[in-house]
Amino acid sequence: MSIYSPDPYREWLRGRLSEELGVREAELTIQAAVQRRGWPAVRALGPRDVVAVLQDVYEKMRERVGDGRADKWLEVTTVNLARFAETVPVPSAGSTETGPPSPPPVRWGRRAHDLPLLLARAHAEIAERSLGAIRSSADMSTLERAAEWDVQATHAEVRRWETEDQLTRMRSDHARIEVADQVATAAAQAQVLRLSVRELEEAARSGQAVTAQLAHGRLMASQTEAFLSTFTPLISMADADTPLPAVDTDLDSVRYALGVPLHPNVLRARHTLNYAQWQAGPSGDASPGVLAAQHELHLAEEEAREQLETTLEAARKHQRAYQQLALKATGLEQRAARLSAAGGDGLSLARIRLEWRQTRTAARVQAHRFTEATRFLEGLISEG
């Protein structure tokens, strides 16, 4: 039997909401959130679940007390939740098996990057079985807290490597589409060059001194055609016309405030600290092992904070760049439509369409980098 609450985050949330809403409405709010999202009624809540409920309450508070007070409440509550997450691991059911952990052998993958994920899953299974064995033993009950942190840390490591695997596939898909974009841009450029050469040839026949420009135009046209003859068979031009991905994620969301305490390296360092405290016994925090573990935890938190802030800032830059480029691409598309409807000359229309392709290609690159950055963040800061 665990000496800790089986659902500590639900109890924390209930207590926090009771201060604002009263005990009854707090409980009803939690039940409504659980039912609306389809969560199992008996499942213990985690930090991300709590954030979701807090955001529900925040929307209600904005209507009742105004944006200012609601914003302040959400900010203070989220900071308190982050501090709580630093001291209380996400609840784990543990393994139902008793006895020492003995995970079955894993099947090795065919690719080198499969191995870290398989290893992480094996460690997670070992941690789950260890927690189950500790909970079933009165002699080891004082080790339960450290074992719970171990479970959370190993699960975070699994998500880290699962994210790496997903990012590998995502980057491959992105590269395929980006190449298609470049080929489509080259095709638009080839059209501009063909029309430009034709215009220069007419100018040369009329006696204008355009020999150098004409030679350069023909050279560029032949090089572009050579590029297209090589790459067009390798891609699907339909990929270049796929809609741009959405980049509307709110990067200022309060959920990112939980990034540091849920980072895999921080969770591993916190497990090490809890284990060191268990080993120290009566010596407590004064023992050298505990002091060293506290120092390592501090370093892990600083490194995690720097990594998360750097990734968030990169995502923000990609998001801003995308929004500017997407707006420009829309304007160019509208210009091309107006010129075509007005019967404009072919070379001017081809130039606008080339600029539209170039702008759209650049926008997609920014959208892809944004998507990769946010997916990387999700793999680091999600508890499940």
Rank of each mutant, 00 (worst) to 15 (best):
S283Q: 15
L234V: 09
R198L: 10
A276K: 07
R268T: 12
L354P: 00
S196Q: 09
L28Y: 13
V158C: 05
D285W: 06
Q358K: 05
A293H: 10
G132T: 00
V210G: 05
D181T: 03
Q31H: 06
G384V: 00
A342C: 11
L200W: 13
Y9P: 09
S287F: 04
P100D: 14
P282F: 01
R171A: 15
S382H: 05
F84K: 04
R369V: 02
A127P: 14
A203V: 01
R357C: 02
P105V: 14
A184S: 11
V151W: 10
P264M: 03
R270L: 07
L200Q: 09
A276F: 12
H216I: 01
F84V: 03
L13M: 02
A269G: 05
R270F: 05
E11A: 08
Y4Q: 04
P233Q: 03
I134F: 08
G66E: 15
E59Q: 13
V50E: 10
L118D: 04
P233A: 03
T211Y: 05
R338T: 12
H295S: 13
W39R: 11
G343T: 15
E86Y: 03
R111N: 10
A187F: 07
A362N: 12
E302N: 13
R145S: 04
G132I: 07
A209Q: 12
V42Q: 13
